[in-house]
Write a protein that binds this DNA or RNA. Structure first.
Lengths: 188, 188, 188, 188
DNA sequence: AATGAATGAGTATTCATTCAT
DNA sequence: AATGAATGAATACTCATTCAT
């Protein structure tokens, strides 16, 4: 309906025009301008979450799920470039989003990763010395920063596939149980 | 001089008062309000960078340098909590910082990581199929997101030491050359 | 129906809710919001007027009627405190009421006083050098201001009986024919 | 400086234009738009108060002071018609003025009347059964309502001199000690 | 008669920035 | 170099009112 504008700098009247309604009508559906942005976020997160669950469907091996997650995430960024720009950039400029909001939907999305780690630990394929939630934030942070770089790089060389593969290969190996006796590097 | 306020919401006149000068005087030293924030960032980055170099001094093994980097980073967040809040939160609300700035100083700081990876690859202790810059952004993103969670968690349980150890152990193993023939998990 | 809210600040939708109807329905019965307030005023003035006529019924002596009028007026303020607040305060904030309206109903109410004066003059008990309409406005102004002070004084000491007695005693003597030769004070 | 506009309906930018300054400059001197109106009121009250004291200077007889007060008040209304319109009409439309403000300056002005009554009572020329403050409000209310009628009557017949004389003659006689034994009328 | 979703006009106020002194 | 009084652009939001159903 309005993601087309994608500006935090957009006037409410612009949005209203684009939607073909009067300014006041916006306020019948959204509490205020910020709520409008946050609503877009929530709506899209629902789709993102559903898509992720579908993508993971059929993938049983936890470490393989990590790879699937990463590829799915970056594919979404690539396929919904405009939306990704709004979510990566504009959303972060929102005081409320940054400080207060920390939304349920994002939590649900990321929790899937934490759950993957937990199950992997149960199955004995993921290190037990790693807190699933810490791993979750690290994984999200890594992907998010790379997505940000992609968005900021605008139209320059940047392969999201490569990004997905880099992140997943690092985390897959980083999280997996060392083979043989070889824990020599991180026994701390 | 003014980090004590730490608000994007702080009035220029507040800053001027705190500094014991007139409003106009601020503009003799800074181009505008945003420049003021960015200047704090740059100034602090110099210290951070110098500190990192010092911390890495004497550490020769690349993978050990990764661990040192992570511990140093989170130690700074812990020891300069107030400043970290400004840098994590307020700075991100700056349109310029997010979109245009991508500053030299941050680049210098992170480049050290890319260089560690490059050297590690030369020395044969780090996988060659990983782009150092990709790894750099992933590493920074992981640390940054965890730091953000720490800041947002306010006064609750959150061990920065554990965060440092988690990130570094994941990346150290994730970046290291697989031992034996054991690439079985991620040959994709 | 709505005096309970008593606010110029009340939303039309509040009034509609309180009345158990839809917003638009209000406009089937009242031209606009101001008309709503003015309608309350008119409706209440009818009652006030009828009550005054009843109170004066049986009182024949003009100067005694003045006292009756005053006591009646203040008794209404006391007995209908909430309504009086709306009429004293909210009504005065209405541009239309203050500037244009000067309503028929108030005029009828006050005219009774002018008529008392006129009759008193005919009967030779009230000074003929006083214009009945001037006296009317003075009398109303005196009562109205005291009522206003009472309303504003909220819950503090203020006897409306004393107010009634003060106003009436001043006006009764002030309007009456000087006894004996004693015009010495105001022959100007 | 701006009384010339006299509109509650005036835009801040109109006032600023008339004053030859920018909109923002208004806010360096006045807290907000209402404060602007209240400030005019306060400033003018100082003059009014000073003028009243001067007018009363040399008049020693309390009842004569009552007449002087009334004539002075209405003369001000007549001589400063424009200002009076602002003060009578616009000021009353101010929620703050009506409900909260009840200002020091008005109190000072009216207190002079209460003091006249008190002194008159001491000197035995004014009835002791009248509370000076009640009399004060009645007197002010009477004058104020007549002034309001004058303002509202716009350019029609209305003699402020006659108004002054009516009010003062009623109050002078109404407040004075009955001569002879003649309390026959209001022994209640 | 009643509804209630949609309308859209209307404006005080802030505060970063300037520049004459 | 420093001042700080003056500037003025810039806009989200409310809520009385309408009118198609």
């Amino acid at each position: 309906m309005f993601a087309e504008k994608g500006f935090n700098a957009a006037r409410i009247s612009d949005v209203a025009d684009a939607a073909g309604v009067a300014d006041g009508t916006i306020y019948l559906y959204f509490k205020n301008k910020e709520d409008l942005l946050l609503s877009i976020f929530e709506e899209k997160m629902d789709l993102l979450l559903a898509g992720l669950r579908e993508a993971l469907d059929g993938v049983t091996e936890p470490l393989e799920q990590v790879r699937t997650f990463a590829h799915y995430h970056f594919r979404q960024v690539r396929d919904h470039r405009e939306l990704a720009e709004v979510l990566q950039i504009e959303l972060r400029l929102s005081n409320k989003f940054l400080k207060e909001y920390r939304p349920q939907k994002l939590w649900e999305y990321l929790s899937i990763f934490a759950e993957i780690v937990r199950v992997g630990q149960e199955q004995g394929v993921i290190r037990k010395d790693i807190d699933p939630f810490m791993a979750m934030w690290a994984f999200f942070g890594a992907m998010d920063e790379m997505a940000m770089q992609f968005i900021l790089a605008k139209h320059r060389k940047f392969s999201l596939d490569a990004a997905a593969e880099t992140v997943s290969s690092i985390f897959i190996r980083g999280l997996s149980i060392p083979e043989g006796r070889g824990q020599s590097l991180e026994e701390a």
